[in-house]
C-alpha cells in the first residue's frame, strides 16, 4: 500500500463526520469519487491506477452502507461511530482517532486547545445557515457552482463559523479588505447546498427542457460519461437531448426511453419529464412536416 491515510472508518474515507446528513454523505461521495476517477488529472504523477481501483471499490462500499439508514445504523453501532447513541462501553476504535479527528475543515486548530481533545467536533457546515436566500442564488446562470461564490450582503451573520472561540488569544490582523463580503469557502458542486437549491427548482419545473436537464445533471455533478455509462445511451444523443437538437434525436418511441433513463439517473420524476419532452418533440416534428408540405406546394 502506497497511501498514508489509512482511513479508519467509512466516514474518514468519505471525509465526512459521523453525524453527516444523507445529503452531506452523498455530496462527499461524489466529490471523493471524482478525485479518483480514471481520467482525474489530480492523480497525475502521484497515485497509479491499481491503487485507485482499490480505493474506488472502498468508496462505493462506504457509500453503499452509509447511504442506507438501516445499514448505516448497524455500521455505527458496530464501530461506535454514532455520537450519543454509542453503546455504553465505547469500543476502542471510536476512542483512538478522537484527539486528531478535528480537521481544519471544521475548526481552526486553536479552537480545540481549550476544549477536551477527545470530543469529536461536528463540522460547521455553512450551507445550513445560509439557506435563506436560495431563490436569489438559484438564478445565477447554469453553473451550479455560481451560488457558492455568490456574494451577499448578509453582513457578518456567518462570522462565528470560522472564528475560533473568542477567548483564544488572537492577534487578529487589523482591518479586513475594503470590500466587505462574507468569506465563503469554496463549495463543491455536489455540495448539499447546491442540491437544496436545485430541488426547489425541480419541484416547480414544468417544461423539462434540455438545458434544464443539463443544469440538474451539472448540479448533481454527473458527468456525461457517467450518465452515458449508466443509461447506455451514447453521449452524442445525450448532448442532443440537452441541446434540444431535434434533428439528431431518434424516433419518439426511442426518445421516450432515453429520457426516462436519463431522468431516472438524475432522480427526476421520469414520467413527467419524458411526457413533456416527447410532447414538445412531437409538436416540433409535426410543425416541420407541415412546413415541408407547404414548401412543396
Amino acid at each position: 500500500m502506497m497511501l498514508l491515510d489509512e482511513e479508519r472508518t467509512f466516514y474518514d474515507l468519505l471525509e465526512v463526520s459521523p453525524d453527516a446528513s444523507p445529503g452531506e454523505i452523498r455530496s462527499a461521495y461524489l466529490r471523493v469519487k471524482a478525485a479518483y476517477r480514471k481520467d482525474s488529472v489530480a492523480l497525475y504523477s502521484l497515485i497509479d491506477e491499481s491503487e485507485t481501483t482499490e480505493l474506488l471499490k472502498k468508496i462505493e462500499e462506504a457509500f453503499h452502507v452509509l447511504s442506507q439508514p438501516e445499514l448505516r445504523r448497524e455500521y455505527d453501532t458496530r464501530h461506535g461511530t454514532l455520537l450519543g447513541a454509542a453503546p455504553e462501553p465505547a469500543p476502542v476504535q471510536a476512542k483512538a482517532p478522537a484527539p486528531n479527528v478535528v480537521s481544519i475543515d471544521r475548526m481552526p486548530p486553536m479552537d480545540h486547545s481549550a476544549s477536551d481533545p477527545s470530543i469529536l467536533i461536528p463540522p460547521t457546515t455553512d450551507f445550513e445557515r445560509r439557506g435563506t436566500d436560495l431563490s436569489s442564488r438559484v438564478q445565477h446562470g447554469p453553473s451550479a457552482f455560481g451560488p457558492a461564490f455568490d456574494t451577499t450582503n448578509e453582513a457578518h451573520e456567518s462570522d462565528s463559523i470560522f472564528n475560533p472561540a473568542p477567548e483564544a488569544p488572537r492577534p487578529a490582523p487589523v482591518a479586513a479588505p475594503a470590500r466587505t463580503e462574507n468569506p465563503i469557502p469554496i463549495r463543491h458542486p455536489s455540495d448539499a447546498f447546491n442540491e437544496q437549491a436545485i430541488v426547489q427548482e425541480v419541484q416547480s419545473e414544468q417544461e423539462w427542457r434540455g438545458p434544464f436537464l443539463r443544469k440538474v445533471r451539472e448540479a448533481r455533478n454527473v458527468p456525461l460519461e457517467e450518465l452515458s455509462d449508466y443509461t447506455k445511451i451514447s453521449k452524442s444523443y445525450l448532448i442532443a437531448i440537452e441541446e434540444e437538437n431535434y434533428a439528431r434525436l431518434p424516433a419518439p418511441v426511442y426518445l421516450r426511453g432515453f429520457i426516462t433513463q436519463m431522468a431516472k439517473y438524475l432522480r427526476l420524476p421520469h414520467e413527467k419529464v419524458s411526457q413533456a419532452y416527447v410532447a414538445r418533440f412531437n409538436a416540433a416534428m409535426a410543425e416541420r412536416e407541415k412546413q415541408k408540405r407547404s414548401g412543396l406546394r
Binding site: L3, D5, E15, R31, A35, Y36, A42, D105, F145, H188
Partner: peptide, 23 residues
Amino acid sequence: QTDIDIGFSVKTVCKKYFGLEMD
C-alpha cells in the same frame, strides 16, 4: 467547472497520499 473541481480532487488526493490537510 471541471477546472475548479480539480482543487477539491487535489485536496482529497493529498490527504490520501501525504496525510495532509490542505485547504
